[in-house]
Design a protein around this nucleic acid. Structure first.
Length: 282
DNA sequence: TACTTCCACCGTCAAGCGGG
DNA sequence: CCCGCTTGACGGTGGAAGTA
């Protein structure tokens, strides 16, 4: 089995590298941590036992960050395919990063509400709030771009083959009589760009300049159009998903840094109090 | 310099999930 | 129930670093 399988969850529970110090007890069966943040203080409270789902729930000030333990699952890597299937079934699906980040940042804000950025409760996490990747298609009534469709992607990557305006990416495409997709550039001057077949896509959307009317015949099917659109959407979605995942990991790492600092401070405080107590006693 | 290894990123597929 | 979104898995690519 490839190590990449569930690697995010694994990273979270293995106690290796940055961002895992608060989860070091994972190998003792402690896989849930209570983090409560009353005003400024932070309490970390391990909770024994956890079921197999990654859940983050919040109740008032108390947030429960429950981390899936994968170590036990990974231990029997040599087991049969049915075991692998079982593991897979057990560990399928986790809440989306958007949801997790929502919960991490609550009750201050809701991710999908008005604002586009927020800070989590520890005041250190800084990540851009993301809306779900949304693509809405609607016709364009302007004569110059008759038949032009517009895909609006909120918070899509600015590097995508599209116009990006403040987190909203607009992909415009026209559908030729042959069923091809054309991406017009320059308003009235409808210079057509053809989205090529998936097989010829090395990376991203390869666009080749061409006539808005002429097209190769092999792309003329409705099915291939739909597929092309689906792939385009999924490409953007995957990009967005990876970005969110990165933010999520960063968010956790920041949280770990804060908790480590807190822990260090408390240890020093305890040490000082101990010394004071010993001096008094002597 | 050529080769290998590692890492990050990407596109695609497939499956689960939630909303309508 | 269907459709679209989300995300894990997989395979591919390119660049950086290490090695013979």
């Amino acid at each position: 089995m490839r190590a990449r399988f569930f690697h995010l969850k694994k990273d979270m529970s293995e106690g290796s590298g940055p961002g895992t110090a608060d989860l070091e007890n994972g190998n003792q069966g402690i896989s849930m941590v209570h983090v409560s943040i009353p005003n400024q203080g932070i309490q970390v409270q391990p909770v024994i036992q956890a079921n197999q789902q990654s859940v983050i729930q919040s109740a008032g000030n108390l947030q429960t960050i429950q981390v899936v333990r994968v170590a036990a699952v990974d231990e029997d890597l040599s087991s049969s395919d049915s075991d692998a299937k079982k593991r897979r079934e057990i560990l399928t699906r986790r809440p989306s990063y958007r949801k997790i980040l929502n919960e991490l940042s609550s009750p201050v804000s809701k991710m999908d509400d008005d604002s586009n950025s927020s800070q989590s409760q520890d005041g250190h996490d800084s990540y851009v709030q993301t809306n779900a990747l949304q693509l809405t298609a609607h016709g364009d009534a302007t004569p110059a771009t008759q038949g032009l469709q517009t895909l609006t992607m909120t918070n899509a990557s600015p590097t995508s083959a599209s116009n990006s305006t403040g987190g909203t990416t607009i992909v415009q495409y026209a559908q030729g009589p042959d069923g091809q997709f054309y991406i017009p550039v320059g308003g009235t001057n409808v210079q057509a760009y053809q989205i090529t077949a998936p097989g010829s896509l090395a990376q991203g959307v390869v666009m080749t300049s061409g006539s808005p009317i002429a097209s190769p015949q092999h792309m003329s099917e409705e099915g291939s159009r739909k597929r092309e659109l689906r792939l385009l959407k999924n490409r953007e979605a995957a990009r967005e998903c990876r970005r969110k995942k990165k933010e999520y990991v960063k968010c956790l790492e920041n949280r770990v840094a804060v908790l480590e600092n807190q822990n260090k401070t408390l240890i020093e405080e305890l040490k000082a109090l101990k010394e004071l107590y010993c001096q008094k006693d002597a």
